[in-house]
Write a protein that binds this DNA or RNA. Structure first.
Lengths: 187, 187
DNA sequence: AAAACCATGTAATTGGTTACATGATTGG
DNA sequence: CCAATCATGTAACCAATTACATGGTTTT
């Protein structure tokens, strides 16, 4: 009954009270490189959590649009989050269509794979720029929140991984340049 | 109706004819760091694909156990694989429970997160060793298959990413050592 | 003879996506 | 006034996991 989404919600509410809409944005801005949520999942989960007393919601007028439901953590919710943090994380079932395609890339025309790599490189470059902005925001915030220690390290991980992906991309594209004259597998 | 699993199956069958059991092993050995399949998903998919004429299966005696159904690509299957490779990969919905926990790590006792990082580091070290073995196997194979170009580059990506994760892990654990005296957030 | 591995399969469940519907508010 | 953004919600769908069931073969 309890999904990881529930825990993500509880986690986000430790940052500050949020609406479902806020959470979607928080996912896209701050958790994007390791977490994802959709509205169709978020809203029903929020209702359930409120019914179970882990969060509570108040209808409030929004500064920028129609009324929103601002949720905040209850004691039970905070406790649940803390016990979850004590459990070891479950094994992940990764599925990267990009890498699946690349792995079987011998069966595609070379320039198609090359193009795919180019777009991947551009995407990673955009991500790198995004990280830079986040880093400035985090460092310049004189909030001095305890959490910023973990937020900066999470960011750091994203930066190291993006750098590695970019390096791989360039290596690939170089090797590809020599390889390109050959035709795709004649199958 | 068609899932990515179908394409993964078609892809694996370009390597050689395989049974469902073989495919599960292939996923665990060769695609592990970017693809995952379960039996409960694989077997029904294989039947569907065979019914639709994208693959065909023959019951054969196994060298090491009970009879197996050896599947191989049909012309239609190979064509489907090739057209899929031309399409750009879909955006991925990443969900890393490990990172979710880490991001909210300020709400857990420091030594719990430290332990989590330690286990993560050990896991990545094991993966690195696994890659080393695969690399030797791939390089020493005098198959000289066209595909090995892509296989080695896929491996290379795994190695770069694992190195980045290990580096991050060590950075984290160092910073943690200084941070540890502080208590978890008093919430 | 038991344990471990080989091999295939099905049923129940579930967690989540997509698409759709609605409507308020703001900015150009 | 129109488009974009803000905001919440539901219904249909689906892909995949988990758990279960079965039984052959090899190794110890």
């Amino acid at each position: 009954m309890e999904s990881k989404t529930d825990l993500a919600i509880l986690g986000m509410l430790t940052v500050e009270p949020m609406s479902g809409y806020d959470m979607k944005q928080f996912c896209e801005q701050s958790l994007a490189h390791f977490w994802h949520e959709s509205f169709g999942n978020l809203y029903p989960r929020l209702k359930r959590l409120a019914n179970n007393g882990l969060i509570k919601g108040n209808r409030v007028p929004s500064e920028r649009g129609p009324d929103a439901i601002l949720y905040s953590l209850t004691t039970r919710g905070r406790t649940r989050l803390q016990t979850w943090l004590l459990e070891p994380p479950e094994a992940e079932h990764v599925r990267s269509e990009f890498m699946l395609k690349f792995f079987f890339g011998a069966h595609a025309p070379a320039d198609v794979i090359d193009q795919m790599l180019l777009e991947y490189e551009q995407q990673q470059t955009r991500i790198r720029q995004h990280y830079k902005i986040i880093e400035e925001t985090l460092r310049s915030a004189d909030d001095e929140r305890e959490e910023s220690f973990f937020w900066l390290l999470s960011l750091r991980r994203g930066q190291l991984l993006t750098a590695a992906r970019l390096r791989w991309c360039r290596e690939c594209r170089t090797k590809f340049a020599n390889h390109k004259n050959k035709e795709p597998l004649n199958d």
